[in-house]
Write a protein that binds this DNA or RNA. Structure first.
Lengths: 187, 187
DNA sequence: AGGAAAATTTTACAAATGATAAAAAATACG
DNA sequence: CGTATTTTTTATCATTTGTAAAATTTTCCT
């Protein structure tokens, strides 16, 4: 997906503001398996996915939990670094070879102070991510694991093709064994 | 909590911008039990809590889930109405008599377009809510119900005194019976 | 204070999910 | 193509959490 479309999908920007942002954006590619963002670091860039798929996962003592998948058009960001300038809780791993647009957070922060259209674009970006996160938080509680799987299968069929089931299970909040049981039932 | 402090806690604003916002803010009180925001409505106001405590809950066919408590200094908002101008998924009920500051969304939206400091204040507001929501989504998965209860007890001891346990249980993602079991163990 | 209503706890049983281990299947790669 | 590795499935048993109903405690109202 091209950068113009990605920026506009978040919030329509006047051409002049869009050009200003694009001056600070560069393209970069990394291979499958590359760790793009690290939990123990204050990250200084955000990325938009041109092509490919990534996952965000957090670690605790004994297990690892995948809580986000990003694909074409999505933003890859350590929210904690971006918002609070503190290290985050997640690593982000590329699950395929990825073509990315990179933007230095610092440059964007400066634009927020100077360009009201960009400030409102940044506001809309946060608001939309918030809605998505809130919906996941709420609706997780209303559905059984089986329903959550079926919903993912319906809304995001390609995800299940592109991502291994262990990660999907973790994203759904269950073990891989449970997911296997569910898949056997649903089929 | 006074409105100046609430606004500043979100993001420090120049006095001039703060005065502009305050022109559109009025005070209002409602009794315990009042439903402040409704799931089936596009809400046109947001509120800041001067005094009191509220809960947000969503309904599905068979059960009701509390997913947010707000107290002094917190913002009460139908995020879906505010962000997307669509009806939300939650009712908000006052659990005590509440003194509130009310701000019409429409007025705020207009200020976003005119005042860059206010636009960035709105951005920071969304970003901070996002961080809080994301943390809840992630850390819920890492802790057992018992750990989540103990954490709430530690970080928010007054909540457990002010709110009935059925709501707390729902917030923790467990049944009231489970919470009772946990409380019997922990004591 | 007294009694009704609401909230909380307890108990018994059922269902869902987890842990572990091992087999089967799919994939990667020399 | 064949072997090693990874991923997925299957089976068993243990644990957690849920459901329902009764018992107890607290709150609220007159």
């Amino acid at each position: 997906m091209e950068i113009d479309q990605i920026l506009n999908n978040i919030y329509p920007l006047p051409e002049s503001s869009k050009s200003v942002i694009k001056k600070y954006i560069s393209e970069i590619s990394y291979p499958k398996g590359h760790i793009l963002l690290r939990a123990d670091k204050i990250e200084t860039s955000i990325y938009f996915i041109k092509k490919g798929i990534v996952r965000a996962y957090a670690n605790s003592a004994d297990n690892e939990i995948t809580f986000f998948f990003g694909k074409e058009g999505d933003t890859v960001i350590s929210m904690k670094s971006y918002v609070a300038n503190e290290k985050g809780y997640e690593d982000i791993e590329l699950l395929e070879h990825c073509d990315l647009y990179e933007l230095k957070t610092q440059n964007l922060q400066q634009l927020f102070e100077k360009d009201i259209a960009i400030a409102n674009w940044g506001r809309k970006f946060a608001e939309q991510e918030l809605i998505k996160t809130e919906e996941r938080l709420i609706f997780r509680e209303f559905r059984t694991a089986k329903e959550r799987y079926i919903e993912l299968l319906t809304n995001n069929p390609d995800l299940i093709k592109r991502v291994q089931l262990g990660h999907i299970a973790s994203y759904l909040g269950i073990t891989q064994v449970s997911l296997s049981r569910i898949r056997a039932e649903v089929k």
